[in-house]
Design a protein around this nucleic acid. Structure first.
Lengths: 112, 112
DNA sequence: CAGACACTTCACCACATGGTGAAGTATGAA
DNA sequence: TTCATACTTCACCATGTGGTGAAGTGTCTG
């Protein structure tokens, strides 16, 4: 279980897997620069916990923190999502054009 | 840390976060129905470990298993990816049209 | 039936994750 | 200088995750 590799895409998906983190990103979509405490305020958890989520998000490159004075403002840097979208896009054909073909595969014997 | 909720989207992203599982899905994209052992063969781990990955993938609804005789064939059922794509798509504007506007946000003081 | 084969399940392990409370560190204000 | 504010870090905890080896189950095959 070494996980020494960089695996950018993995960190992106991992970061997106938590509902709290998705909520943080969703808030930053409409309010483009929020302080850490403003971000944490709506959540039913301690500031520490939100900090850890922010650590995961910035390790994944999805947000950036900028200290100005004693407040730290968090901004969206969603470029890593582009790679995630691109990865998913390879499967798009399965739920658009050839859904019936997929259904056929599902019923196909294993040696086909 | 209850995690009682269903959180379909979270399970999807969680399933996609592991490189082994992404490799499994990638293989199923081109070879639409593979047996469990055929799927496991290229990986440097025991069959058990691959089984656990398949459990995660089928819990997320990304693959289906169909037993026929003593072999089990695994097929791609990537519908949950559609929701994941849709979620990501909300952020698409940030890396296409208004990248310069994003850059401006990054430099904006926190109270803006 | 006996045995191989394909898969599943069980018990276990090390490390990651998501939370807590409490203490620590700058920085702005009185 | 003193104190509150805004984060950060530390120590800890329960549970989840990704792997192992070994045993169990159902299905062909000789």
């Amino acid at each position: 279980m070494v996980k020494y590799e960089s695996d950018e895409l993995g960190r992106t998906f991992q970061a997106l897997a938590d509902p709290t983190r998705r909520a943080i990103l969703a808030r930053l979509e409409t309010e483009p620069a929020l302080s850490v405490s403003a971000l944490a305020e709506p959540f039913p958890m301690q500031l520490n916990a939100v900090m850890k989520h922010l650590d995961v998000l910035s390790d994944a490159g999805l947000v950036a923190r900028h200290k100005s004075g004693r407040t730290v403002s968090v901004t969206l840097t969603p470029q890593p999502m582009e790679a995630a979208m691109a990865w998913l896009q390879r499967y798009e054909r399965f739920w658009t054009a050839s859904l019936d073909r997929l259904a056929a595969f599902v019923e196909t014997p294993p040696e086909a």
